[in-house]
């Protein structure tokens, strides 16, 4: 609150000062600042805008020998191949299912954790929990999946050993990792374990900015601890939540490649084949590498993501009172 007031004051002062001066003299006056901006602008142009020309290979039959510009145009052939592909429906449905489930679970839990940690009074306990929960974030995905597979191995893993210990039988339990239906749960909940702590950091930061006076006032009014979470803490981080939700919606069509690919096996393929793994298999590993096809699917994916982002942003603007949105 205090911050926003301060910043608006600054901008007001700025407006007054700049009145009557031309744009150019202003530019010259602040040239140091503009020079600073040059670096990020160059970065964005070189690494984000220039590569966009490469998108054209989605509409070409790319051949490395001829290069991007020299390859012959192919029109929308690659998009048609994808839409007609037998795998189209499967990969879209799987991608959306994994992504939405993941969002529903992974999005609210860090908020809950952050609110809970914020209420804890013992600073040392709070710090310990925070550290313990975010450390898995730094593990490599290969290691995480390797651990998962090893723990759940019915013969040599912890799961098999514990199962045999409890039931007292010598035979091995059924394999969890093989069940097609269990893939999505393993994927999402191992993700919770890995990212919960890390994702909650931003909310903890936002919560630390809540004015203590508000809490005091609520306490005087007789609000309970839980009431204070609902009426003071939660509203304070609503803007953060909605911005993150918008950003998350923008990547709804992209499920990370690495983890899915590592967790795939022939038995769960019907649930685990997603857009990114399909692109990898068809576009990059088979035959001579079908880059145009891979790019076409990637482009299709990005367009859907972009539409979703704009849509959710628009919704958020419409529905929230202080119109939280990205732009």
């Amino acid at each position: 609150m205090a911050n926003t007031m301060k910043s608006s004051a600054v901008s007001l002062a700025g407006k007054k000062r700049n009145k009557g001066k031309s744009w150019t003299s202003q530019f010259v006056r602040n040239y140091q600042l503009h020079l600073f901006m040059l670096i990020p602008i160059a970065y964005i142009i070189i690494f984000n805008y220039v590569p966009m020309f490469g998108i054209q290979i989605a509409f070409k039959n790319f051949s490395p020998g001829k290069g991007i510009w020299g390859s012959p145009w192919a029109g929308l052939v690659h998009f048609q191949t994808f839409f007609k592909s037998y795998q189209f429906q499967r990969v879209i449905v799987n991608t959306l299912r994994i992504s939405i489930y993941s969002l529903l679970v992974n999005f609210p839990l860090p908020i809950v954790l952050a609110l809970m940690l914020n209420t804890v009074r013992n600073a040392r306990f709070k710090k310990t929990v925070q550290t313990v929960t975010y450390i898995p974030y730094f593990l490599s995905m290969v290691v995480v999946v390797g651990m998962l597979v090893q723990f759940l191995n019915p013969m040599t893993g912890v799961y098999g050993t514990v199962y045999r210990l409890i039931t007292g039988s010598a035979s091995y339990p059924p394999s969890i990792i093989q069940k097609p239906g269990s893939f999505i749960h393993l994927y999402v909940w191992s993700g919770v374990w890995q990212y919960l702590g890390w994702n909650s950091i931003i909310y903890i930061a936002a919560l630390s900015g809540v004015d203590p006076q508000l809490h005091e006032a609520a306490q005087i009014d007789g609000a309970s601890r839980f009431k204070r979470i609902l009426t003071v803490d939660l509203p304070a981080i609503i803007p953060t939540i909605s911005v993150l939700l918008i950003l998350n919606a923008g990547s709804l069509m992209s499920v990370g490649f690495e983890k899915v690919y590592l967790m795939q096996n022939n038995l769960n393929l019907m649930q685990s084949e997603v857009i990114s793994t399909y692109v990898y298999k068809v576009g990059l590993t088979s035959g001579m590498g079908n880059f145009s096809y891979a790019t076409a699917i990637g482009l299709f994916n990005s367009i859907i993501n972009c539409i979703l982002l704009v849509l959710v942003n628009w919704l958020s603007k419409k529905t929230s009172e202080n119109s939280t949105s990205l732009w």
Partner: peptide, 16 residues
């Protein structure tokens, strides 16, 4: 991963 691979590829292809 897919994104980054593709991105790097496209970037490099483009620049060159």
């Amino acid at each position: 991963m897919k994104k980054s691979v593709l991105a790097i590829l496209v970037i490099l292809c483009m620049v060159t």
